[in-house]
Amino acid sequence: MTLLGTAGGPGGHVRRSGIASLVTAGGRRLLVDAGDGVVRQLAHAGHSVNDIDEVFLTHVHDDHTAGLPALLTFRHTMRGGPLTLIGPPGTRALCDGILAYLQANTVIRGREGRLPDPATLFTTHEVDPGVIDAGAGLTVVAAENTHYTLTAFDGAQRSYAFRFEASGRSIVFTGDTGPSTAVEELARGADILVCEMVTDVDIASAPPPVRAHMRAEHLSPTQVGRLAARAAVRTVVLSHYTDAGPNELAAIAAEFDGTVIAGEDLMHL
């Protein structure tokens, strides 16, 4: 697994690209979320846009999807093969918008050499929580987390955590979430828990109307430690944060005695 980007929230960061991770499992390369800068980060990691076999979206907030139009349009221009996008309800509407965005480039680039219909570029699967049909050698399980507890979407939008298992190894991505028994159960005994975290500094830097969401629908350092301890994971890798200083790491360690790694862009685990 490679952490391509570890910055949560909208806006640019000096040291971090938007949320995205690359998982190699079952002989395939899986992109988990596609935040801003994902194409550049793939290049840094030695991969092209045509190397990705599937994209898994935890939810469709812009900090997790802003790089997806670039990934898809460059793959289209480079004549990449069909791509499968898997995510919660809301994924299809997002992809329909990206298809509309691709039309202008298709017309212009088509004069340079015919491009296929962008509608043939990717297939979208909106999935329910549970086991996802991922093919031989790979098991993928989704669980609905608590990232949307303050807002009722009537099922039109949902937010997921994912667990990937292959070759005796398990990696769980919390996605964006507040405290969640469903995520705790999903992460039970995982080798690696890639866990979102927001700090007091992150909350203070957010616009005032967003701060209630930050407190209720994300994890504080203490809550990260409690989740990891209750799930009995081996290693926690922090993501979706700006900085993890001694105070934050101490708060996690007070609840969890396993390994804690402050994730950085392009870190390979």
Rank of each mutant, 00 (worst) to 15 (best):
T2W: 08
T2F: 06
L3I: 02
L4P: 03
A7C: 10
G11M: 03
V14A: 13
V14H: 09
G18S: 08
A20D: 03
A20C: 06
L30N: 02
V32R: 04
V32F: 08
D33K: 00
G37E: 01
V38Y: 02
V39E: 02
Q41H: 09
L42M: 07
H44L: 12
H47P: 01
I52N: 00
I52C: 00
I52Q: 00
D53R: 05
D53V: 08
E54N: 03
V55G: 03
L57E: 01
H59A: 05
H59E: 14
V60Y: 08
H61L: 11
H64C: 05
T65V: 14
G67T: 02
L68W: 06
L68K: 03
A70L: 10
L72A: 11
T77Y: 12
G81L: 09
L83E: 04
T84N: 04
T84F: 01
I86V: 15
G87K: 02
P88H: 00
C95G: 08
G97T: 07
A100D: 13
A100V: 14
V107E: 10
V107R: 12
I108V: 14
R109E: 11
G110C: 12
E112K: 08
D117G: 12
L121H: 13
T123Y: 06
A134E: 06
G135W: 11
G135P: 04
T139Q: 11
T139G: 10
V141D: 10
V141C: 10
N145C: 10
T149E: 14
L150T: 09
A152F: 11
G155M: 11
G155K: 12
Q157F: 14
Q157M: 10
S159C: 06
Y160H: 05
Y160W: 07
F162T: 03
R163G: 13
E165S: 14
A166C: 09
S167R: 13
S170K: 02
I171H: 06
T174Q: 03
G175M: 04
G178A: 06
P179N: 12
T181C: 11
E185W: 07
A190F: 08
D191C: 08
I192A: 05
L193S: 03
E196V: 09
I203F: 01
A204K: 02
P207K: 08
P207H: 08
P208R: 11
V210S: 12
A216R: 15
L219Y: 06
P221S: 15
T222L: 09
G225E: 02
L227M: 10
A231R: 00
A232Y: 05
V233W: 05
R234N: 13
T235S: 01
T235Q: 02
S239P: 00
H240M: 09
P246V: 09
A250W: 04
A251H: 05
I252H: 03
T259F: 02
I261H: 05
A262K: 05
E264G: 09
D265P: 02
M267P: 09
H268I: 10
